[in-house]
């Protein structure tokens, strides 16, 4: 095995490599880390870049892929690309689930046999509370999309982002009742704090963090490689570079080795104090 494969096998490096497929989005969420919106520069990674780096990730010894954005499904050829990625390594794609019309679902259907899971954001059990954070009709679209994806055979995870570290107990229980009713088991429900970066820098309850607080998951963007998917955030149109590992991304070997060097240079211990995943 190589150095990276050993580090992944030993738990020194997380096994997942994240790709920011694009930065633009059809929503303008209040806490968006990347300040995404319809007019954001797209800063895309092409399908060929994604597939090439996925192959490199597998060869190095990484074990999983993640695709995030922006809203990844705004990129027209994403389903085909996801099929190629999930044929290389198990893949999770993060989405706001607002674009799952009949045509997109039909394109995704053949991929259900692959190790491809879909992580969907849902922040509150009440439409008005959720939609205030994430935009009009968001709740209804998510409630519509999740059972359809589950019905196609996809593993669907629900990610709930809340100010502060805790969700109100009653709301939490109602949200769990809701996701169970949609076909998503408790193990596939993540609750995480709003991180004080990007558009959330001024959000009450948002949590500041240092690199030691977040898992060092190699994260590839059009602007470089980062320590974590919480790294390449945008504020006032400027990309944050405090968690930048290298500008070079391809071949993946260099940022992977630099990340490992950085990880080994810090005290060993639990990799994520506040459990931001």
């Amino acid at each position: 095995m190589g150095v990276i494969a050993d580090a992944v096998a030993d738990g020194v490096l997380p096994g997942r490599v994240w790709f920011y497929g694009n930065y633009h989005c059809n929503l303008v969420c209040a806490y968006c880390l990347t300040e995404s919106g319809p007019r954001s520069p797209q800063r895309r990674l092409t399908a060929e870049q994604l597939v090439r780096m996925a192959e490199q990730a597998a060869a190095l010894g990484f074990t999983e892929l993640g695709v995030t954005g922006g809203e990844p499904f705004l990129v027209r050829d994403l389903p085909a690309t996801l099929g190629r990625l999930a044929s290389i390594l198990p893949t999770v794609v993060l989405t706001n689930a607002t674009l799952f019309g009949d045509r997109l679902l039909a394109e995704l259907a053949p991929l259900a046999a692959l190790p491809l899971s879909v992580q969907i954001s849902l922040d509150a059990p009440d439409p008005d509370v959720n939609d205030e954070l994430r935009g009009p009709e968001n709740f209804a679209k998510v409630i519509d999309a999740v059972p359809k994806l589950v019905g196609l055979g996809f593993r669907v995870r629900i990610a709930t982002t809340v100010p502060g570290e805790r969700l109100d107990a009653e709301d939490h229980e109602r949200l769990c009742t809701l996701h169970r009713s949609l076909g998503v088991p408790d193990d596939d429900h993540l609750v995480r704090p709003v991180v004080r970066r990007g558009r959330a820098e001024d959000t009450g309850g948002a949590i500041a963090f240092t690199p030691d607080d977040v898992a060092p998951e190699l994260t590839i963007t059009a602007d470089g490689a980062f320590w974590s998917p919480f790294g390449p955030t945008v504020r006032d149109g400027r990309l944050a570079t405090d968690l930048l590992v290298s500008r070079q991304t391809d071949p993946l070997e260099r940022p992977a080795h630099l990340l490992l060097r950085l990880v080994e240079g810090r005290p060993r211990g639990d990799d994520a104090r506040i459990g931001i995943r």
Binding site: P211, W227, A240, T241, D242, L243, L244, V245, S246, L258, L262
Partner: peptide, 10 residues
């Protein structure tokens, strides 16, 4: 110029 707050890890 990159200031301390934006300094990359390396």
């Amino acid at each position: 110029l990159v200031g301390a707050a934006d300094a990359p890890l390396l």
